[in-house]
């Protein structure tokens, strides 16, 4: 069953075509890569899926509902999680609070219950806090629980962002360049982590990545973007040898541009 279905998405920025006729279907349980050279429009696709921008044309279906015109928070609460290319944690909040904010939509107590701190409120708060601690432990971040996010080392910040996205038990996780700024060893750890998470949280993952190794290792399927247009869909291995992909990455004739 299709978890996410994107139909002929189009988007312009001030008359400039950023995305044209982008279609993609992601089935539950899949791990799909979205690749392409810089400025190809990959992050724009993520922003369209998550409601940061609303598309000029086309439709988005998620978990059986048309989410094309929904606001971001509603889309995310429906079961999506997202991380960012340049980490966007809540820098002055503790790691624990960062993760708990991620559970915002799960919380069902009312403003009245909040202001009077009713037993129902306390029960839910305690559950949520426990769950946040579990997640921090799972990501080996427990010792940073009360440390403001800005003081965490880079790798830990990346992991915290994933933990924040996962506390709401999303069906679909959107990862925007999770390996950016990591060295070879760290990338190895990341690949293992993502594999494990997929099992543990029963995730479907859509991944933007520059690092071909990650894509090769993880993705069953890739879609290649260039100047907002899809130039290839298929297995990662095929993508590596496809002439259009090579041209997009390396310039015409498969030769690097002359310097």
């Amino acid at each position: 069953m299709a978890l996410l279905e994107i139909q002929e998405l189009c988007h312009n920025f001030g008359g400039l075509k950023a995305i044209s006729d982008f279609s993609l279907t992601v089935t539950a349980g899949e791990l799909v890569g979205l690749i392409g050279p810089n400025g190809a429009g990959k992050t724009t696709v993520f922003n369209l899926i998550t409601g940061v921008y609303h598309p000029d044309g086309g439709h988005l279906y998620f978990a059986g509902q048309d989410i094309t015109t929904w606001p971001s928070y509603r889309i995310m609460a429906r079961g999506m999680g997202r991380t960012f290319q340049n980490i966007r944690l809540f820098k002055d909040l503790s790691a624990l609070d960062n993760v708990r904010v991620g559970a915002f939509a799960q919380c069902s107590y009312s403003l009245r219950q909040t202001l009077f701190r009713t037993p129902g409120f306390k029960r839910q708060e305690a559950q949520m806090t426990d769950r946040a601690h579990q997640l921090l432990a799972r990501f080996k971040l427990s010792r940073y629980a009360l440390t403001p996010a800005r003081h965490l080392p880079y790798g830990e910040q990346r992991r915290l962002e994933i933990a924040r996205a996962l506390i709401s038990n999303p069906k679909l996780l959107l990862l925007d360049e999770p390996a950016a700024g990591m060295n070879q060893a760290e990338i190895g750890v990341l690949i293992t982590l993502l594999r494990e998470l997929r099992q543990e949280f029963d995730l479907t993952i859509l991944l933007i990545e520059h690092h071909m190794g990650v894509v090769m290792d993880l993705c069953q399927r890739v879609q290649v973007l260039d100047f907002g247009e899809t130039i290839f869909t298929g297995s990662p291995l095929e993508a590596q040898h496809h002439p259009a992909v090579l041209e997009a990455y390396l310039g015409k004739d498969g030769e690097p541009d002359e310097i």
Partner: peptide
């Protein structure tokens, strides 16, 4: 306060 857009994008009804 920290990042309104990111808050929206993790499901906070800002």
């Amino acid at each position: 306060r920290e990042d309104e857009l990111a808050a929206n994008l993790i499901g906070v009804n800002t």
